[in-house]
C-alpha cells in the first residue's frame, strides 16, 4: 500500500524537462539541436541548460537554435551567435583563452599533483616493506 502511494511521485518526475516539437529534415540536424540545447545555459535559471528549462527565454532560444539549424548553420556558428549576444557565460563549454586557462588546466594539474604524491607514497611504503623483510 505504501509503495502504491509513492507511485504518483514517479509520474511527476517525467514532467520536469521542457518538451516542444521541432521537425528536422535530417538526423544530423536533430543531433545538432539536441547537443546545442544541452550546451547552452538558460540565463534566467542559471543552473539549467535551455533543453531542460521551462522559462520563456529558454523556449525562445530553443526556437532560435532550431531556426538557425534549419537555415543550415553549424554548431560553431550557432554557439558564436549566442555568445555574441549573451557572452561566454551562455555556453557550458567555455572556449580556451587566457581568461579561462585556469579552468581548463587546473583539473590536470590537481591530477598530476595527486598522482605524484600517491606514487611517492607507494614507493616509500614498498621500500619500507622491503626493508623490514630484509630485517627479518
Amino acid at each position: 500500500m505504501k509503495k502504491l502511494l509513492l507511485l504518483p511521485l514517479l509520474i511527476l518526475t517525467f514532467s520536469t524537462s521542457a518538451i516542444d516539437i521541432h521537425e528536422f529534415e535530417t538526423e544530423e540536424q536533430r543531433l545538432d539541436y539536441q547537443q546545442l540545447t544541452e550546451e547552452l545555459r538558460c540565463l534566467v535559471c542559471q543552473n539549467q541548460n535551455i533543453a531542460d528549462s521551462d522559462a520563456g527565454l529558454a523556449k525562445d532560444l530553443r526556437n532560435e537554435v532550431a531556426k538557425l539549424i534549419k537555415q543550415g548553420q553549424n554548431q560553431i556558428q550557432i554557439t558564436d551567435y549566442m555568445v555574441q549576444r549573451y557572452g561566454e557565460f551562455v555556453t557550458y563549454s567555455p572556449p580556451v583563452g587566457t581568461h579561462t586557462i585556469v579552468l581548463w588546466v587546473m583539473p590536470l594539474l590537481v591530477f598530476l599533483i595527486a598522482a605524484f604524491v600517491l606514487i611517492r607514497g607507494i614507493k616509500r611504503n614498498s621500500a619500507q616493506a622491503n626493508h623490514s623483510e630484509d630485517d627479518s
Binding site: L43, E64, R85
Partner: peptide, 13 residues
C-alpha cells in the same frame, strides 16, 4: 512581440 529583438540585444529579463 516575439522577443526576437530582445535576443539580438542579449536581453534575458
Amino acid at each position: 512581440i516575439d522577443g526576437l529583438v530582445g535576443i539580438d540585444f542579449g536581453v534575458y529579463g
